[in-house]
Write a protein that binds this DNA or RNA. Structure first.
Lengths: 95, 95
DNA sequence: GCTTTGTGTAGGGTATATACTACATTTTGT
DNA sequence: ACAAAATGTAGTATATACCCTACACAAAGC
C-alpha cells in the first residue's frame, strides 16, 4: 500500500500574523518551533503535524477549521462582515 | 530551539468507526494509509499529519474539530441530543 | 470444533517534518 | 540614507510519521 494520497490544504497564518502584527519569530517561539518552520508552512503549504496545527490555532484563539481548510479561504472581510456569519471562536487553550 | 512543545489531543475515530461499522482496514484504504496507522492513531494518540487528519475528517463528512480536539470528547449523545446543538458538518470534500 | 475478521504488539525500513546555520533581499523605523 | 527587523533560500542533520511483515489473541460465523 504505497498510495500516497496526500491532500492539499490552505491556511490563514500569514493573514492572521499580519492582522495582529506578530512576526514569524514571535509565533514560532510561542508554539515552540523554528521560525523557518512557520515560513515553510506559510509558503510551501507543507504537511505539518496535527499537534502543531492545534498549537497554532490555539495561539490565535481559533478553531482548527478557522485556520486550516482544504479549500482556499475567502478574504476575511467577506466572511466576518457578512450578515449572520457564524462565530467560529474556539475555547482558548493555554499552551 | 530544541523545545518539543507537543500537545495532547483526542479523537473520535474509534467511536465513529463503531457507529458506522467500518473496520480499520476499510478506513485505512479509504484515506490511503496502512491499517496499523489507524490503530496507532486510535490507541497511542500519536501525532498524525494535518493532511491525514483532513482525509479522516472528510471520510466521515465532518470538520476537523468534530473529529479531533485538545480536550477529551463528551459522549456523543450529550452533544447531539442537547437542544440547539450547533451542527458542525463540513463540506464533504472528495478524496 | 474450525475459520475468518478485527485487533494489539513488535521490529525494521523509508520518507519527510522540523531543527539549525548562514547569507541575501526586502521592508520598516528613525 | 542608514540601521534594524522581517523575510526568502539553501544546505545538512535528526526525529518520527507512516509502511510493511509477522504473529498472538479475541470475537463472530460456519
Amino acid at each position: 500500500m504505497t498510495s500516497t494520497k496526500e491532500v492539499e490544504f490552505y491556511n490563514r497564518l500569514k493573514l492572521l500574523r499580519t492582522e495582529r502584527s506578530v512576526s514569524r519569530k514571535e509565533l514560532a517561539e510561542a508554539v515552540g518551533v523554528h521560525p523557518q518552520t512557520i515560513g515553510y508552512i506559510e509558503r510551501r503549504q507543507y504537511n505539518l503535524s496535527l499537534s502543531l496545527a492545534f498549537r497554532l490555532a490555539s495561539y490565535f484563539g481559533l478553531s482548527l477549521d478557522a485556520v486550516f481548510s482544504q479549500r482556499p479561504f475567502e478574504p476575511l472581510s467577506n466572511e466576518t462582515l457578512r450578515a449572520g456569519a457564524s462565530q467560529k471562536q474556539a475555547d482558548p487553550v493555554e499552551l
